[in-house]
Design a binder for these strands. Structure first.
Length: 449
RNA sequence: GGCCACGUGGCGGAGUGGUGACGCAGCGGACUGCAAAUCCGCGUACCCCGGUUCAAUUCCGGGCGUGGCCUCCA
């Protein structure tokens, strides 16, 4: 059975046939490194990590290239760095490089805790300015982009001429007329067309900039992905993933830039994960339901967060809830109790068939419920779960010596048929979140969640 | 306002033009001093209104609700 994927470009579920089975190529939009990643950012990281694992399984570990970029040039970064510089007195350049380096490191730590494998390549935008300029020059030369001098005469904006691209709108399925009709933004005076977007913009003295044919400036948002994807994956590659909110304008513009520059199809299969809500509401700081991965990891094992995410199909909207997290924890704990002693884990056919069917992780999890212990352990391992982290989290900050003493005292009471005392000890520890279990092999305990 | 997605049992969540996926919770039973854990058993759900059809939760149209994009937020 081939892998089938729902292609946003065609809106149909298609058999996935790689352009080159010896080098299957996937690009996923990574983080802009100015602050901790939130739980919504975790979704594409986890979803496309599972796809990466599946592709490696199908085509061989050495035959898949997965690129996830780091956006380290951005006006949000500049704004945050300026704030930090003002508060701490450090130079703004230093604040900026510290901010991006620190945030990138935190992101890697977070997604690693969520069980994600490192991508094959994690390119940084600032290290590919030359490639971006090259791409922009190409677009200017072939008439798809134009330079508009800035009002103060220093440097120029370079804009992509949307009218020059007959295919513009093919991903998000909207015509230019529709976009114009719905537009609520004032059009910058230097634009020829209202929907034209920035490839390059001038930088003033306090803003990071690079020398270019259009003066000192910095890249627009979309060009970095086209440049880096092209460099590491070629003019045409297999899969491009990201959140549904990036479909327009970001991915639409990537297509426009790359296809007008190279006159070749950019991406064969576009994949978009659905949006995340928290407790039935939009996640926002003002509603007080905004959670970073970092703060959730303080209370929940990364595996629980990961499993919780995979219980919903990647294209569906997901409602992130703490009740769901507790349920996920419970399911994993039960499974780990069964799989722990096994030596020959191997996923079964039902499990793989579910994953091949448009990465249907809820169906794969259902298959796991019906699986033999070996197939269960294999499936869990395949999805990136191992119980080590759970055990650490579950038994952290627990006084195991005191628990052992309590168990001994309780068993002495039980032997003497002093059940009032034995139940008192059990209830005392239950109140502390420790559950005692009497088994034929003796009394064990675990943390209640 | 324009475009788009989603709406399944108490909860989560697949899927399908015609036989109740699966999980959590709950209930009954076994086990236990009593529990917990485990095992066995138990559930006629598909937002509303039309239409197509022998048959619709599944297809089509409209409505309502939630959310996304159109404002460099995955």
């Amino acid at each position: 059975m081939p892998i089938r994927l729902t292609n946003s470009l065609t809106k149909t579920r298609e058999d996935f046939v790689p352009l080159d089975p010896a080098n299957v190529r996937m690009y996923v939009c990574g983080p802009t490194v100015y602050d901790f990643a939130h739980i919504g950012n975790a979704r594409p990281a986890i979803v496309f990590d599972v796809l990466f694992r599946l592709l490696r399984h199908e085509f061989g570990e050495g035959h898949v290239t997965y690129v996830r970029n780091i956006t380290d040039v951005d006006d949000k970064i500049n704004a945050r760095a300026a704030e930090i510089a003002a508060q701490t007195g450090v130079a703004v350049e230093q604040a900026r490089s510290d901010l991006t380096a620190t945030t990138e490191r935190q992101y890697i730590e977070d997604v690693t805790a969520l069980g994600c494998l490192p991508p094959s390549v994690s390119p940084r935008a600032t290290q590919h300015i030359g490639e971006m300029i090259g791409l922009i020059e190409k677009l200017v030369a072939n008439g798809h982009a134009y330079a508009a001098p800035s009002s103060n005469g220093e440097g120029a904006h370079v804009l992509f001429d949307v009218q020059s691209d007959d295919d513009y709108g093919k991903l998000s399925r909207r015509s230019l007329d529709e976009m114009m009709a719905g537009a609520r933004v004032e059009v910058a005076p230097y634009k020829k067309g209202a929907m034209d977007f920035v490839l390059w913009k001038p930088s003033d003295a306090g803003t990071p900039g690079w020398d270019s044919p259009w003066g000192r400036g910095r890249p627009g948002w979309h060009i970095e992905c086209s440049a880096m994807a092209g460099k590491y994956l070629g003019d045409t590659f297999d899969i491009h993933g990201g959140g549904i909110d990036l479909q327009f304008p970001h991915h639409e513009n990537e297509i426009a830039q790359s296809e007008c520059a190279h006159h070749k199809p950019y991406v064969k299969t576009w994949l978009h994960n659905g949006f995340l809500q928290v407790e039935g509401e939009k996640m926002s700081k003002s509603l007080g339901n905004f959670f970073t991965i970092r703060e959730l990891l303080a209370d929940w094992p990364g595996e629980v967060l990961r499993f919780n995410m995979l219980r919903t199909h990647y294209r569906q909207p997901i409602d992130f809830t703490f009740a769901g997290l507790r349920e996920s924890w419970k399911m994993l704990e039960r499974w780990y109790a069964v799989t722990e002693p096994l030596a020959n884990p191997s996923p079964d056919a039902a499990f793989f068939d579910a994953l091949r069917d448009d990465l249907n992780t809820p169906a794969a999890i259902a298959a796991l419920h019906q699986a033999s212990p070996d197939a269960l352990a294999g499936g869990l391992g395949f999805l990136g779960f191992s119980n080590v982290q759970m055990k650490i989290a579950a038994k952290a900050e627990v006084d195991t010596v005191a628990i052992a003493d309590a168990i001994a005292a309780r068993n002495a009471a039980r032997k003497a048929k002093d059940f009032a005392e034995s139940d008192r000890i059990r209830d005392e520890w239950l109140a502390k979140g420790i559950v005692f279990k009497d088994t034929p092999q003796g009394t064990t305990w675990e943390v209640k969640k």
